[in-house]
Nucleic acid binder design. Structure first.
Length: 494
RNA sequence: GUCUCCCUCGUCUAGUGGUUAGGACAUCGGGUUUUCAUCCCGACAACGCGGGUUCGAUCCCCGCGGGAGAUGCCA
């Protein structure tokens, strides 16, 4: 499979790009790159009911954010365009009519109501036969003319043989065979609005665009034989198939919204980095050797192979994604992190938009202490809240560390404040101050944290915070003093 | 109901006709640390079941069980 590999990602713009879809895109993209082939983007916007401009924009912006560039497709063009199916409208009718003329397809005038009724009855009677009853399979010319005269818009159905069986080869799965009678009976290939269904559009375009390998989710396996039948009806070569394992939610069902966010856009908004998404998502259902886990996009463009694709469906693990994201955040350089973090602080109203020079400096200075603690970029908001909004802790018990008590805490606070402020003001080193504070704890007969905790709570309004001296540095001595005094006052009342 | 596919720790996976069945996430425990986090160390944890083939099966074959997907004028 060296020469001219051509693969495509062909999403339907009927919703936001989600993990499963993007995983398919990634596999196709990496496979193309690794084999020196072309990655083609094709927009399958044949469902006019569910189509939305927003979905289309989301498709473009998501791929751009991930850094996935298509060699041919919308916007960039290519020799086999247009790459948006609605712009190829007339084409599909021609091919469908060709099949009708050859007797391989036929007009159907059944109403949706009738079809629904048929389906309902089949389900209720637990009939072995499911699907269209071929009601219009043998209409006479005059019947057809009469229906058309009445203005009924027909669909075109593909005539599926009732005898024999059809086999297609899947690179991963091997040969998959279905008896023709088990294939969905005479599926619609051209809808009454003149748009093709997936089956027709997909086959026609894959052929016309010279697609060599079809990598798509396993949910398409059942229609594999149908597509082969279609290729045969047209007299075309069948491309190579490779059905990808599906991405599941925790409960083992196909991943969907009810499992949590699945839209890539949502992950982006929460503060996941594109390299983390790419790395983790391609590891769902694929592996190189079972032990390597960090892959850059560039590496995957070289080392991705079909052999590494797993057969079984894989559960998407949000926690592992978090872990990857944390790893990538820690690897990221500080300047980049600063700019990535800024929008979150602006959104929280913590810094101005547009950003001022002072805020910029502040952000630069908080990056180092915050980067070890973030799983997602939006974590920066709770982590730095104490700098931007002051919500003093009124509950004394919060200040009291385990193993300490109110009296010792009051002492620690009073004398600790003294040590801290004089130390800071006289330019003592943090180590020196720290030593004095820990000496104080010994003197009081409590653990080190018995001294640090009340000070921390006073300054950061929380028992959990950035390192104390980092916090002070970011907050400034003046504000630090104010907060310490306030806490001291709290413990002196009553 | 029918058809098709799938089956190694909780999860993602590596792997072999003879291995202490490997790694990672998660979980738990410990260490470093002023808290949290990071980081380091350690522990727990899997070949779905039953037959066969074989000197020997997680691995090969068959059956069962379980799971998933498809069954649309959605893709």
């Amino acid at each position: 499979m060296k020469m001219d590999v051509r693969v495509r990602y062909a999403p339907s713009p009927t919703g936001l790009q989600h993990i499963g879809g993007i995983r398919t895109a990634l596999f196709n993209y990496f496979f193309a790159k690794a084999n020196g082939g072309k990655f083609i983007l094709r927009v399958e916007d044949t469902d006019r009911e569910r189509y939305s401009d927003e979905s289309l924009e989301d498709l473009y912006s998501t791929l751009e954010w991930l850094g996935i560039k298509w060699d041919e497709g919308p916007v960039v063009g290519g020799p086999y365009g247009p790459y948006i199916q609605s712009e190829r409208f007339d084409l599909y009718r021609e091919y469908a009519e060709q099949l009708v003329a050859e007797g391989k397809a036929y007009y159907c005038f059944c109403t949706p109501e009738r079809l629904e009724e048929v389906r309902k009855q089949q389900a209720e009677s637990k009939s072995e036969y499911q699907g269209y009853d071929r009601h219009c399979a043998h209409l006479s010319d005059s019947e057809i003319k009469e229906y058309l005269r009445q203005g009924i818009k027909p669909v075109i159905r593909f005539r599926v043989p009732t005898e024999g069986k059809t086999t297609f080869h899947d690179i991963l799965m091997g040969d998959i065979t279905r008896r023709n009678r088990d294939i969905s009976p005479d599926p619609v290939i051209l809808k009454s609005d003149g748009f093709p269904t997936y089956h027709l559009a997909n086959v026609v375009d894959d052929h016309l665009m010279k697609i060599t390998h079809i990598m798509r989710a396993q949910e398409w396996i059942p229609s594999g034989p149908l597509h082969v039948l279609l290729y045969q009806a047209f007299g075309w070569d069948v491309p190579q198939y490779c059905h990808l394992p599906m991405v599941m939610g925790k409960d083992g069902q196909k991943l969907s919204k009810r499992h949590g966010s699945t839209a890539v856009r949502d992950f982006r908004a929460k503060g996941y980095l594109p390299e983390a998404i790419i790395n983790y998502v391609t590891l769902v259902g694929w592996s190189l050797d079972g032990s390597t886990e960090f892959f850059s996009k560039e590496e995957l463009e070289k080392c991705f192979t079909m052999e590494g694709i797993h057969k079984a469906p894989a559960v998407f693990d949000y926690k592992k994604l978090d872990w990857f994201n944390g790893q990538y955040i820690r690897q990221a350089d500080n300047a980049r992190l600063a700019s990535l973090i800024t929008p979150y602080l602006q959104q929280a109203g913590y810094v101005s938009d547009p950003i001022t020079e002072d805020d910029k400096k502040l952000i630069d200075s908080l990056v180092p202490s915050v980067k070890e603690r973030m799983k997602v970029l939006s974590d920066v908001v709770p982590l730095t809240a104490f700098l931007f909004e002051d919500k003093p802790v009124e509950d004394k018990t919060i200040y009291i560390a385990k193993g300490s008590d109110e009296q010792n805490t009051a002492q620690a606070l009073e004398r600790g404040t003294e040590i801290l402020l004089t130390g800071l003001k006289s330019g003592e080193s943090e180590e020196a101050i720290e030593e004095k504070l820990s000496a104080l704890s010994q003197e009081l007969g409590i653990k080190v944290n018995g001294v640090f905790q009340p000070i921390r709570v006073a300054i950061t309004n929380s028992t959990v915070s950035l390192p104390l001296f980092d916090s002070i540095r970011l907050l400034g001595i003046e504000e630090t003093e104010k907060r310490l005094m306030r806490a001291n006052k709290l413990f002196k009342e009553n």
